[in-house]
Design a protein around this nucleic acid. Structure first.
Lengths: 110, 110
DNA sequence: TTGCGTTATACTGGTAATAGAATAACGAGG
DNA sequence: CCTCGTTATTCTATTACCAGTATAACGCAA
């Protein structure tokens, strides 16, 4: 059977935010570490690091507060702007999903 | 400034229909030739041919009526089902675009 | 029977994305 | 001053995808 598929993301000179980054940020928030978040997703640290850098550059603001060295080695934590972004994006995608599925049903399943 | 981007397509064991194929079909209809349509898009004939084959397999019905050989060499023409598909998809995407942009505006531009 | 423009199909080479390896730097604490 | 776990950064290999090339088949018309 034919299924609806879609991807929604935000751009500014390239991909600036989407589903994947959103998930990654939530994990960083929970674990307090970019390295550990990458591990959970079986993604290499360098890839995750590059991703975060690119997003911050494109969004124009910092997503992470990063601590290098120290007691625990360091860690990464969400900025307030990151939290706002996650919230907005989540709501937006949730409602978009509803709208698209309704339209899909109308055009292809009736 | 942050922009909304999205892709919408239909799947059945892989991509079955989307923006690109829809455009390709319209060109075939106008030109009466898969070869010429590929040429317009600067796409190799073999790529276009493979694309059409894959789509037909995944959709479960024929998009093209193909004539090999003969006076003009042959040609490709849309099936009735292809026309219906183009119409449905076009309407669907048009309305989806409206819905998504409205939501985007609400969440990111107000 | 030859020529032409199309569809049909296999094969091969290039390349762009990306994944990971390797290494440096950092800073608190023992 | 040494350790430890993190962030920071570069570099290379690979590999999956894709794109074109080449070739065959076809059928009408001259």
């Amino acid at each position: 059977m034919l299924k609806l598929r879609y991807k929604i993301w935000l751009e500014n000179s390239g991909k600036a935010f989407g589903e994947g980054p959103c998930d990654m940020l939530k994990r960083i928030d929970r674990l307090g570490s970019l390295n550990k978040a990458a591990g959970e997703l079986k993604m290499s640290y360098s890839k995750a690091w590059k991703l975060m850098n690119t997003l911050e550059k494109r969004l124009g603001f910092k997503l992470l507060k990063r601590d290098v060295g120290g007691d625990s080695g360091g860690g990464s934590y969400l900025t307030e702007e990151a939290r706002v972004m996650i919230h907005k994006y989540t709501m937006f995608v949730q409602e978009s999903d509803k709208a698209l599925n309704k339209l899909f049903k109308h055009y292809f399943e009736e």
